Amino acid sequence: MARIFMLSLVAFLAATTLSQAAEIGDDGLHKQPWFSLSFRDVAEDIETAREEGKRLAIVFEQRGCIYCRKMHEEVLSDPQVRDYITANFNVVQYNMFGDEEVTDLDGSSLSEKTAARRWSVVFTPTILFMPEIAPEDGTVGEAAVASMPGAFGKSTFLHMFQWVREKGYEGDEHFQKYHARKLAADGGAMETTE
């Protein structure tokens, strides 16, 4: 009887875990339920995030991207990473080859794929971290305070979001030094996921 109960419990937990995984949308991109829905006006998205006491992060992905899948399944599914991001950032997803209309900080209207080229996004996933206040001119690519091109392990990913939230880009400590210091302070607890 105990064996049947344990097998049932394992099956239930597996089903629950799978149901919480990111789903794939019609555009072929993984969707997190906590990603922000937006009209893709970057200045408005920055202001909305600021009003909520958060920062805006724009993530570019593409259909069939194995690194995007890894980010969703192995990094964004981690409660520590997910909870930190949702408490401190609004994340808006863009399709690197998409046709949805985007409004850049200078007021230009362009497609997602044109925005990716204009903002020098060439890898997926790439995350662009926006300033707290939208500049009155320029482009997202010029205004971004940091970017994270590619898929990284949990600690690197989390530390980058923490570094941006703490405005590390304004100080003298480069992200790599910050990351090394945080790894040492954490005793390498998340390091095995790199």
Rank of each mutant, 00 (worst) to 15 (best):
M130G: 05
M130A: 07
M130V: 06
P131S: 01
P131M: 00
E132F: 05
E132S: 09
E132K: 13
I133G: 02
I133S: 11
A134H: 04
P135I: 01
P135E: 01
E136F: 01
G138C: 07
G138R: 04
V140W: 12
E142T: 10
A144C: 08
A144F: 05
A144V: 06
A144D: 06
V145C: 06
V145T: 06
A146Q: 02
A146K: 06
A146R: 05
A146I: 03
S147K: 12
S147M: 13
M148E: 10
M148H: 07
M148V: 04
M148R: 08
M148P: 10
P149G: 06
G150W: 05
A151C: 09
A151I: 08
A151F: 14
F152T: 07
F152Q: 10
F152S: 07
K154Q: 15
S155W: 10
S155R: 09
S155P: 12
T156S: 10
T156G: 11
F157K: 07
F157L: 12
M160P: 12
M160K: 12
F161P: 00
F161D: 00
Q162T: 06
W163Y: 15
V164R: 02
V164G: 07
E166P: 11
E166D: 15
E166H: 08
G168L: 10
Y169H: 09
Y169P: 13
G171E: 11
G171F: 09
G171C: 03
D172G: 13
D172Y: 07
E173S: 11
F175R: 10
Q176W: 13
Q176Y: 14
Q176T: 15
K177C: 06
K177A: 15
Y178V: 02
Y178Q: 07
Y178G: 01
H179R: 08
H179I: 04
H179K: 11
A180S: 09
R181N: 14
K182R: 15
K182T: 02
L183Q: 02
L183V: 01
A184W: 03
A185E: 15
G187V: 08
G187P: 13
G188L: 01
A189Y: 14
